[in-house]
Write a protein that binds this DNA or RNA. Structure first.
Length: 695
DNA sequence: TTTTGAAGTCTCTCC
DNA sequence: GACTTCAAAA
């Protein structure tokens, strides 16, 4: 398969030769791990050894004779997939590499490449990431002439969101409009036509968006019994992590995958459902027993991660939420300090507190990689990042803007994609729009022309451009010819293929880039990086698919120490932090309107999700938890009628009683903090903390 | 018709 | 403070 390399964990030594399930696991975990077959639902609170249980279950299945390649492990994020498989590998050794695992989307992709052709799907489809899908929506919108109406028509992002919600939740578009976008009800008909156009456009252009990877997977299972039984026969056991974050579509896929053997294990925590914006419905986990009669239910309540004071706080926080599967997490890790609630004067004082505290903990022996700073949204760490760079503290950031969302990277990929799929309208449009002398109208003309020629790869070369675009046309067709010539002549030496193609593209593109963007140097460096990544892939299609499904986490290493740093602090969105744990966790911006986000406060369900998100963030901590909030928030949003500088409503009186309060005093040092080497003794904060009020 | 500059919008989370 | 959209100039 094109993308199998993605599922092979890094080689590691096998730890210890022996393992004894009955001593390694507690009785509930053991029950889940050795469950013989049939539907199994594991309700696992935060830090209760959920992954451990799944890992041991995989090991047990292999030990008892299930061939590894007949086990499918589905997770929600790429990070979770990688972690699970590498831990399983340490337990059972290299056989684990043959376990099929990954996200729902990557597994769907793999099956579609394999079985799609027999279901009428072209073999060489390209995958649209979210941005591409939105751009295609925009093309549809323009083609149907909905862009230039007097009354506001939804933007491409909104349109795509509605469409995606519809596919993932199976809620009719009209109902979605009524419930969430009443202002667009006037456009009901137009939106319906637009979605129809978008759908047929995808089919004609050989494009699949993320939702299609799930949708076509399900269609393969539901439309043809012979095909379905072939696919079902691939696996004897299916295991699903983070089941509370699955949506209706995914749950139907699981039902169809397991309708024969019914060997389905799902693990989840209804208190940690945080992906409803993607159509996830944590009710899925509550409905599981009804969908799979005869289910075995195991509940894990013993927490191995956090100290009792931290659990006291987080249990109180989540007790406000309505839950059906009630869990009361407990631990034997008594002792330890209460979580801190730190009031700072403003953002810079918050930043200074975090940095000083991190240095102090580091001084006491906590490695940087055992600490994390969490926040609601990627941009909230900007000030902190600057300070970390100043103080030369290495860090890596999870979530937030990704490498391939950068426009210059997408530009280069567009060239590769039209070589791969000459019908890729989104990429053609992108390419045309970056050429001087070609604008929206000319671009659409060219594409119409190409469509008439049946998307013949030479169609562009034969197009007769208007005078002002002649120069651009000549350059571009020269480059496309060079790329194709190289491709035709190349039957060997595939390894260098894509990197070489990127080289040809950059001969033309680097000049364009310098014209179009302000600081070209950093962007050119990104392109070097892209080329390096590309060189590691066996084929162009594998490279493009992997980029869409498993994009590199973070490429710009902002740390002072270079990219070989292995002890570095983690900055992460609360979403990306799920499933991880650290010795010390800092949750910043605990300000009402930031966390919870202001846009959620009118909707009860969304507000509850924000609460669960904060619960997820706080339960990442093993020993130290700091929640900080600045009193003065300088933001244009303050002009709205909503007060932004209150403590988060989730940290109510009951929760605060379980925390110790610190109010930072006036800044004792007026001058900016000096650059500090992390190895040097840190500023002692204790004196400052003694000034605490309240508590 | 394209480009450029200025006003305006809206802020996220992830595959 | 970044990105999009809109309006006027080339």
């Amino acid at each position: 398969m094109t993308d199998t390399r993605l599922y092979i964990p890094k080689p590691r030594t096998v730890e210890g030769g022996t393992r004894d399930l009955s001593t390694d696991l507690n009785p509930e975990q053991l029950r889940a791990a050795i469950h013989p077959g049939g539907p199994l639902l594991v309700i696992a609170g935060a830090g209760t050894g959920k992954t451990r249980t799944l890992v041991y279950r995989v090991a047990h299945l292999i030990d008892t004779g299930t061939p590894p390649e007949r086990i499918l492990v589905l997770t929600f994020t790429r990070r979770a997939a990688g972690e699970m498989l590498s831990r399983a590998e340490r337990l059972v050794g290299s056989a684990t590499a043959r376990v099929h695992g990954g996200t729902f989307h990557s597994s769907g992709h793999r099956l579609l490449r394999q079985f799609g052709p027999s279901a009428g799907l072209p073999k060489d489809f390209s995958i649209l990431d979210q941005g591409d899908a939105e751009d295609l929506m925009q093309l549809s919108r323009g083609a149907l002439g909905f862009g230039s109406k007097e009354k506001r028509f939804p933007k491409k992002e909104t349109l795509h969101h509605i469409y995606s919600r519809h596919v993932n939740t199976e809620i009719p578009v009209d109902d979605l409009l009524h419930a969430e976008y009443p202002q667009f009800l006037d456009w009901q008909q137009e939106i319906g036509r637009l979605f129809a156009d978008y759908t047929s456009r995808k089919q004609e252009r050989n494009l699949l968006d993320y939702d299609d990877l799930l949708l076509y997977w399900l269609l393969m299972l539901e439309s043809s019994e012979s095909l379905a039984s072939q696919i079902r026969a691939l696996y004897d056991h299916v295991l699903v992590d983070e089941y509370q974050d699955t949506n209706i579509l995914q749950s139907r896929i699981l039902q169809a995958m397991c309708s024969g053997h019914r060997n389905l294990t799902v693990v989840g925590d209804d208190a940690q459902g945080i992906y409803s914006f993607r159509g996830a419905n944590f009710r899925n986990i509550l409905d599981f027993p009804r969908q799979f009669p005869g289910v075995t239910l195991v509940t894990l309540e013993r927490n191995y991660r956090s100290t009792q004071p931290i659990l006291d706080t987080t249990n109180t926080l989540i007790s406000r939420a309505e839950q059906r599967f009630t869990k009361n997490l407990w631990t034997e890790r008594t002792g330890g300090e209460m979580p801190w609630l730190v009031t700072a004067r403003d953002e810079s004082q918050q930043t200074r507190f975090i940095v000083d505290r991190i240095l102090a903990l580091h001084e006491e022996g906590t490695p940087l990689k055992e600490m994390a700073v969490l926040f609601r949204a990627g941009y909230m760490s900007a000030d902190l990042e600057i300070e970390l760079v100043n103080r030369k503290i290495p860090f890596e950031k999870w979530g937030g803007l990704k490498f391939l969302e950068a426009s210059h990277v997408k530009d280069v990929l567009a060239f590769l994609r039209v070589i791969e799929n000459p019908r890729d309208e989104v990429s053609w449009y992108r390419i045309f729009m970056m050429m001087p002398g070609i604008g929206d109208v000319t671009a659409r003309q060219i594409m119409a022309n190409m469509q008439e020629r049946g998307w013949d790869p030479d169609a562009f070369t034969h197009y007769a451009p208007p005078p002002r675009a002649r120069d651009a046309h000549a350059k571009l067709s020269g480059m496309l010819r060079a790329l194709r010539r190289r491709r035709a002549g190349e039957t060997t030496a595939q390894e260098k293929g894509i990197a070489e193609e990127i080289g040809i593209i950059r001969d033309l593109y680097d000049g364009l880039l310098k014209e179009r963007y302000d600081r070209p140097d950093a962007r050119l460096a990104d392109l070097d990086q892209l080329r390096t990544i590309a060189a590691g892939y066996p084929s162009r299609s594998a490279f493009l698919a992997a980029l869409a499904l498993e994009p590199p986490q973070n490429t710009q290493d902002l740390s002072g120490g270079g990219d070989s740093e292995d002890d570095c602090l983690v900055l992460s969105t609360a979403h990306s932090a799920k499933g991880k744990e650290w010795d010390a966790v800092f949750l910043i911006w605990c300000v009402d309107g930031w966390f919870p986000s202001a846009r959620c406060i009118d909707d009860e369900a969304q507000l509850e999700e924000e609460r669960r998100l904060m619960y997820v963030a706080m339960t990442r901590a093993r020993n130290h938890l700091y929640c900080t909030y600045p009193l003065n928030v300088y933001s244009s949003r303050r002009s709205s009628d909503y007060s932004m500088d209150q403590l988060s409503r989730f940290l109510d009186r009951g929760v605060r009683e379980k925390m110790q309060r610190v109010t930072m005093g006036e800044d004792p040092v007026a001058a900016p903090a000096p650059a500090v080497d992390p190895m040097l003794p840190a500023i002692d904060l204790r004196a400052m903390m003694k000034k605490r009020f309240g508590g």
